[in-house]
Structures are given as C-alpha cells and as structure tokens.
Amino acid sequence: MANLKGARILVTRPEHQAGKLSQLITEHGGEAVRFPALAIVEHEDSMGIQQKLANLDKFQWLVFISANAVNFAVKANGGKIRQLSTQRIAAIGSSTAQALQAVGLSVDVMPESSYNSEALLATAQMQHIDGQCFLIVRGMGGREELAEALRSRGAEVDYLEVYKRIIPRMDNSHLLALLATNTLAVVTATSAEVLQNLLVMVGIGARQQLLKIPLVVVSERIRCVAVELGFERIAVTEYPSDTAILETVATLCNRSIEWQN
C-alpha cells in the first residue's frame, strides 16, 4: 500500500471506534485528524431491554445490526445474553459477529460479501421465513428496509433498540483551521448520519470548504446521501472495513482519479 506522505485524513468515526483506522493511517505515513461526528450512548430504558431479553422464547431469529447493538444489549442485560436452542442469530457484518462470539453467542448467518441489510436478505436462510418471528437488535431510529422486507416474506418482526446516536460536543477550532488553510486531504465517513452531523458541526462558514475535499464513504447508499448534501468528489470503498477505507484513501492521495459525481 502506498505511503500517505503526511496527508491529513479526517476520521469521523465515534471516538470508541476510531482507534484502528487512525492507527492504520499513522502506520502508512499519514496524519489522522480525529473528529468524531457521532456519539453512541446507551438507551435509557434498561429495564425494558432486560424484560425483552428475558422473554426471547417467541423469536426464532435474533438479528444484530452492529457491534454496538451487541455491546449495548449485553451491557443493559448485566453482561450476558441467554441463547436458546430454538433460536438462530444473524449478524450484519464481521465486527458484529466478532462481538457476538466475544460474549459466547454463536452466529448462524452472516453475509459473505457486503455487510448490510440487503446482503443479509440475499442469504439462503432469509428466503423461506414465512411465519417465523424476528427480533432486530439495533439503535433508535434505524433503517426500516430490513424489517419491511422480512415482513413481505411472511415473517413477524419486532425491534429491540438498545442505544441512540447523538451529535457530540466537540471543539471544532482545529478542524476549522485545517479547512481554512486547505490542508485537509481526505474526509472519511461510515454513515449518512455522520455526514449530516459533520456539516452541522463545522457550521455554515466552513461548509463550502468541506464539500470540496475528497470524501471516502463505505457504501453506495452513503454516496447518494453525500451527493444530495453537496459533496463534490466522492469515492466508495470496496468493503466497509478500516483496511478498505485506508486503501481508498491511499489511492486518492497518490494518484488522480476520474470523479463520477
């Protein structure tokens, strides 16, 4: 992988998830500028979460949307989740699967390529689910496409929301200085909400400078949101992993590409 040659890369992941990407950037000669544009906090209704997790008998499937969904569910439930022999567990991606395995839960289904709801729905196990009951463990206000698709296939779907996303309070002076001097090489973002929050956090005055900087996102869906928000140069990673983000960043820093947006 090419050397980043001192390029400053904006890392917008939540603080507790930014370490690996920041380390990779540093190891490859770049400077990671950490500016979390999203914070993940626990849901206030821990009693309600515990009650639902104590009554899992009606569900044939537990679907965990993210590692955060696993970790906050476990935290709210006193450090563990009971897995029944009649249940199967689905994980959206590898980090979610690893979080499940770390707390002693076995994973029955995980998409092999793209780590999103569409890829999970494409698996063989999700094709014939008429009459089965699903519990989707997620954060507040997540996407509805997965539940809608499962219901269209005859399944019953319920939610367990264990965390919420908020805009963190951050000192933006260093970021504004980098934008003003045009010394930020690439912006990275792993969700549409991060992009929306980031624009709010930099304010109207720096918005146009931010929109001109090359942006790396991890899905076509996020790219479409970025286009609507006004970002001018957007690259999509092959996978949503930190390594794939780094590879795309390195490409932007070491050779010119033809922008399609």
Rank of each mutant, 00 (worst) to 15 (best):
residue 1 M to H: 12
residue 3 N to D: 15
residue 4 L to F: 07
residue 5 K to E: 10
residue 6 G to D: 06
residue 7 A to S: 12
residue 7 A to L: 06
residue 8 R to K: 11
residue 10 L to N: 07
residue 10 L to G: 06
residue 11 V to M: 02
residue 11 V to P: 00
residue 12 T to R: 05
residue 17 Q to A: 01
residue 17 Q to K: 02
residue 19 G to R: 10
residue 23 Q to T: 10
residue 26 T to M: 04
residue 26 T to R: 07
residue 28 H to L: 04
residue 28 H to D: 09
residue 29 G to R: 02
residue 31 E to Q: 09
residue 38 L to W: 00
residue 43 H to N: 10
residue 43 H to R: 06
residue 44 E to K: 13
residue 45 D to E: 11
residue 50 Q to M: 11
residue 52 K to L: 05
residue 60 Q to Y: 05
residue 60 Q to E: 04
residue 63 V to Q: 13
residue 67 A to S: 09
residue 69 A to G: 10
residue 72 F to N: 03
residue 73 A to Y: 09
residue 77 N to K: 12
residue 79 G to S: 15
residue 80 K to V: 08
residue 83 Q to E: 15
residue 85 S to P: 12
residue 91 A to S: 02
residue 93 G to D: 01
residue 93 G to K: 00
residue 96 T to N: 00
residue 97 A to E: 01
residue 101 Q to D: 15
residue 102 A to S: 15
residue 103 V to K: 15
residue 111 P to E: 01
residue 112 E to P: 04
residue 116 N to M: 00
residue 117 S to L: 03
residue 117 S to A: 15
residue 118 E to R: 04
residue 119 A to L: 02
residue 119 A to S: 14
residue 122 A to I: 02
residue 123 T to A: 11
residue 123 T to H: 08
residue 126 M to K: 00
residue 126 M to L: 05
residue 129 I to E: 00
residue 132 Q to N: 07
residue 132 Q to S: 10
residue 134 F to T: 05
residue 134 F to M: 05
residue 134 F to A: 05
residue 134 F to P: 02
residue 139 G to P: 08
residue 143 R to T: 02
residue 144 E to I: 02
residue 145 E to G: 02
residue 145 E to R: 10
residue 145 E to Y: 09
residue 147 A to K: 08
residue 147 A to C: 09
residue 147 A to W: 08
residue 149 A to R: 08
residue 153 R to S: 04
residue 157 V to T: 02
residue 159 Y to V: 03
residue 161 E to S: 07
residue 161 E to H: 06
residue 161 E to C: 07
residue 161 E to D: 10
residue 164 K to D: 06
residue 164 K to A: 05
residue 165 R to M: 09
residue 165 R to W: 09
residue 167 I to Q: 06
residue 172 N to E: 08
residue 173 S to A: 08
residue 174 H to V: 09
residue 175 L to H: 04
residue 176 L to M: 01
residue 179 L to I: 04
residue 181 T to H: 13
residue 183 T to H: 14
residue 184 L to E: 01
residue 193 E to M: 14
residue 199 L to H: 14
residue 200 V to L: 13
residue 202 V to I: 14
residue 204 I to A: 15
residue 211 L to R: 10
residue 213 I to D: 12
residue 214 P to E: 13
residue 214 P to D: 14
residue 214 P to G: 15
residue 214 P to Y: 06
residue 215 L to C: 03
residue 221 R to W: 13
residue 221 R to T: 12
residue 223 R to T: 07
residue 228 E to R: 14
residue 229 L to T: 14
residue 230 G to T: 05
residue 236 V to M: 04
residue 245 I to N: 00
residue 251 T to W: 00
residue 253 C to D: 13
residue 253 C to Q: 14
residue 254 N to P: 13
residue 255 R to A: 08
residue 257 I to K: 11
residue 258 E to H: 15
